[in-house]
Amino acid sequence: MSNLSKPIPPAGGPGGLAVEIRGKTFRGADGGDVRAIENVAFEVAAGRFATLIGPSGCGKTTTLRIILGLDPDFKGRLKLPADGAGRVAAVFQEPRLLPWRSVEENVRLALPEEDAGRDLDPLFATLGLTEMRSRYPSELSLGLARRVSLARAFAIRPSLLILDEPFVSLDEQTATRLRKLLIEVWSARPTTALMVTHNLREAVQLSDRIVFLTERPARIRGVHDIVTPHGERDTRWRETTLSVIAKRYSGVL
């Protein structure tokens, strides 16, 4: 919470996200219990972007699923932004578009009733999807489908945005372009956001707070806050920050 001096006014309703998971166990296929999360507790201030980083299979996606309400079977508490009254948007690892609906329909279907007729032109234009509105998802490349998935998330003006490795398995060029787009859309209306990634560079570029997790069962390894505004994060700044972080948390790079 040391970075409240940031100039951008927080959006997405009062209060940020507070996560407190005191234990999460999965029933394994052999009947034995697998402990996925030991103790994960962190906060994201309203209108801030946080990132979860940790080794494969350490329970990052599980944490996101608990926050999304897809897995109610856990010990602990959650406090969602806007006291749970706001909407939550998710960008999943796979785009998860409805193949039988066009790009525009996919985005519009997510809109709340009272917003159904909203003008989506600016959003589609920002994400470079204007030409694709009437296409079906099967006609899109993975990069384009990811953009549609981002458009859907931002279209509903969420109070909480959850991103689960949104740029995984894209070529670096496409991923970089999409990250820029994400910052652009997000900065226009900063929303409390939580992203899971394996990519520390990505985390450093996008987030205000990085939460490092341990191996399974997950615990918090450390929290790193970044106060430099997004606009001032150039290549040199990034390399310095990366080496600072790498020194403190060995093995994360």
Binding site: R87, F92, A110, R152, I156
Partner: peptide, 20 residues
């Protein structure tokens, strides 16, 4: 996966049935 997407985006029963 699509069912979860519909749940997160609060499609509701009618919309989920028709579109998902």
């Amino acid at each position: 996966d699509l069912e979860e997407m519909a749940k997160v985006y609060r499609f509701g029963p009618a919309k989920t049935l028709r579109h998902v």
